[in-house]
Design a binder for these strands. Sequence first.
RNA 1: GUGGAUGUAGCUCAGUUGGCAGAGCGCCAGGUUGUGGCCCUGGGUGUCGCGGGUUCGAGCCCCGUCAUCCACCCCA
Length: 417
Amino acid sequence: MSAGETQPLPGMSDLCAPEVFLWQRIEDAARRVFHRYGFTEVRTPLLERLSVFTRAIGEGTDVVQKEMYTLQDRGGREIALRPEGTAGVLRFAADGGPERAEARLYYLGPMFRAERPQAGRKRQFHQIGAEALGPPAPAADAECIALQLHVLRECGLDGFALQVNTRGLPEERAAVSAGLRAALQPRAHELCEDCRRRLETNPLRTLDCKQDGCRAIVAALPPVSSFMGEASRAYLDETMRLLDRLEIPARINPLLVRGLDYYIHTVWELTHPALGAQDALAGGGRYRIEVGGRALDGVGFAIGMERLALALQAAGVTPDAAAARPRVWLAAAGAAQTSDLLVLLQALRKRGVSAGMDLSGRSMKAQMRAANRAGAPWVVIRGEAEASKGVYLLKDMAGGAQREMGLAELLQHFTAP
RNA sequence: GUGGAUGUAGCUCAGUUGGCAGAGCGCCAGGUUGUGGCCCUGGGUGUCGCGGGUUCGAGCCCCGUCAUCCACCCCA
């Protein structure tokens, strides 16, 4: 409620129970699938030299120009919080020997972009991503898409739509730009102000303009692949054919543009209808990135965890708090019994039993209420009467029945298979 | 960076033409001298986001500001 000190920065949020259980489930599912595909985790720094991002993502992109958190470190170096994962992973790959040029890596963690927060858009957001390094091959792209869908399905999600397009090769970009510019020229005066500017700077960008007028004009354009060479068109065709053989429903969207410069050939995006305006659940593509004097090829994707969690919740997948529920709760009548039960509490935990207890010395009634709230199926009660007999009272919370037990029998009850 | 909406109890939200700050849920205590869930009773001093202004009087009107949400933009 109180604004200010206790609130996180705009666009950043604290993640806690119960939502955090859903996140853990997503992370576990992703790791499981990645390992099955031979990917290993890499944890690169959140901070990198600014040039790592500007070189890879592209000087003129929105991500670099208006969305990065940049700062100077104590040595006066220009550094930045990572706005995406690929650049750092590729910096890592270039840092090692030649075997890293064929590495299969996944990552999972926070990214930072200084945008205006919105539904499904945070300034600190989280991605699950993977990079399969290696030379361009339609089969590698198809496998990467299959992996991404596999991760999503393993999380319990369905109902997303896959759109694919091609960016061609870097050397074809001039031809694509020129082709688009020429095709748009006759109707340039009908385009919106932004698009008239884009026509000069980056004609590709006119393709995903949201203005109705521009959309109508752009929809009539020949596909970008028509301005590319035969090899690039064949690459896209083969990729689509392989997706079809893998029974992955995909649609070519000739208007799909992705805002990072490093992409070549296959690019794709997954949208989900539950997400609202920010409906891109995940994206990916093939890239060629120059780092440390050499060009590395690969294909990769990223899944937005916030958006995945939103889509899952919309689909009725709820956080499962069961894992955090104690199996047994301990309740003491009197301070002397509290210390005895604290010893029992630790004995149970050491034996692998999740156990809880209210240690603040409250009434029996309050302790029972706490046990009920925690969802413990069993409660162990100990007061003067039990202490003098050297026993514990075990209560079954579902039926209400209770009976006395010695310590050995009690431990046996909770540790027996 | 631009626009719209919204800020009242721990949470979700009412609050009339400006006139004593409210409900539900949750939480705590009691009814049950050692026992949860259901029921009953009791428990609210809360910077009405913050700062100014108008007024006899402001949660309500005006100005500013901050925050949140949504949308543009961009992307995951």
